[in-house]
Simulated assay, not measured.
Amino acid sequence: MKFTPSRLSELLPLFGGRVEVLNAVPEQVDLADIALVGIRPLDSAQACHLGFLSNNKLKSQLLTTRAGVVIVRESRFDELREWLSTQSRPEPWPVFWLVADPYLYYARIQQWWVARSEFKVPAGIHPSAVVDPEAIVDPDASIQANAVIGAHAVIAAGVNIGAGVVLGRGVKVGENTRIYPNAVVYDECELGRNCIVHSGAVIGADGFGFAPENGAWIKIPQVGRVLIADEVEIGANTTIDRGALDDTLIGYGVKLDNQIMVAHNVEIGEHTAMAGCVGVAGSTKIGARCTIGGAAMVLGHLNIVEGTHISAATTVMSSITEAGAYTGIFPIDTHKAWEKTAVALRQIMKLRAEVRELKKQ
């Protein structure tokens, strides 16, 4: 993205923090002259870029970076300055912007820069969009080419509906929510304010519910909805199934990565985050402020307590009642060594019985 040029003197009052300059006093630096055109990694930044150092292990990059301004952690700057004083650098040091949390500042400033720089889609309905006469679309919303809006749908002010998006009958979309091209929201599902739904996401498809009968499967109609609270982000090609009877619930501030599967009647608590390819089976309840690593699998009808952290590729087979970090990954090995381990694992129950017998003797 091409960012709108900004000056450090403009950013400082907006975001706070203070400036330090090595071998000079801050008052001698004309902040109005430091023009910036975006944030870049330290190893590729130029004088017109803002960089940030969030991991002190990467401080050696400060010796070669060409960034004009670098965001650093204020609480560690004295230590950093002492180390830099023992190092040599062929070019002048960048200006250091001291803040409480460099990574958080990076996120906040980047949000501001994107909002200021990105193309603003004009409000209105594209001529090729199909909007049911019984739908309610705020005049300040944008409906782009080939989108389809069903009857009784309600689209609030500031909503941006991308090209080819399909919103079913009775769908509600809250203020300033953005739905990227070719996402689908089934009938009667609801999204809150300031949500982001990326391309290919499907919200409200039928849950996987079938009753067995003589070796065949009888479909159970899925009559619940998907209710999504404010400030939720849903990644590309992620699917969230509607409930069988009750609703599937996604709490405030939840962040879902790409290609996640959330089954029917799942409840996800506020500010929980899941990385790509996670699968959550039906009727599981996940508490607030949990994190689930990529490709982890959570079985159905479980309860995961608030504040739980599950490592990538872990399979959760029982409820978690005590907050903490949980990992269930068998380490990779050569195939030959893995075969030996597999054979040994098959003997564990036999060995267990033998050990018990020996203990008795």
Rank of each mutant, 00 (worst) to 15 (best):
E175P: 06
L14A: 03
P212N: 09
V173I: 15
V165K: 05
A129F: 11
A156K: 12
E357F: 01
W338Q: 12
S54H: 13
G287A: 08
I161R: 04
A47Q: 14
V202S: 04
N160R: 11
G209P: 00
N182K: 10
A263F: 01
G279F: 07
D140L: 15
A35S: 12
G209E: 04
A157C: 06
T308S: 15
I161T: 12
W217G: 06
K57Q: 14
G269S: 08
N160C: 03
A337R: 15
L345N: 01
E354S: 12
T238Y: 03
L14E: 12
G307T: 09
L62A: 12
S9L: 12
P26Q: 12
K57M: 10
K219S: 07
S283V: 11
P26D: 06
T334A: 10
G324R: 14
A153N: 05
A183L: 04
A100T: 14
A312L: 03
N303K: 15
E79N: 13
K59F: 05
T239M: 10
I234C: 01
G235S: 00
A157Y: 03
K350H: 13
P139K: 13
T327G: 06
R178W: 10
H152Y: 14
K120H: 13
A216H: 13
E79I: 13
P102D: 12
A141T: 08
V99L: 04
E91Y: 06
V171C: 08
S318M: 00
I179L: 11
G200Y: 08
A123E: 03
T284R: 05
L80Q: 12
Q347V: 01
W338S: 06
A313H: 13
L31V: 08
G170I: 09
L245Y: 15
V226L: 04
Q46P: 00
S117T: 09
L358Q: 12
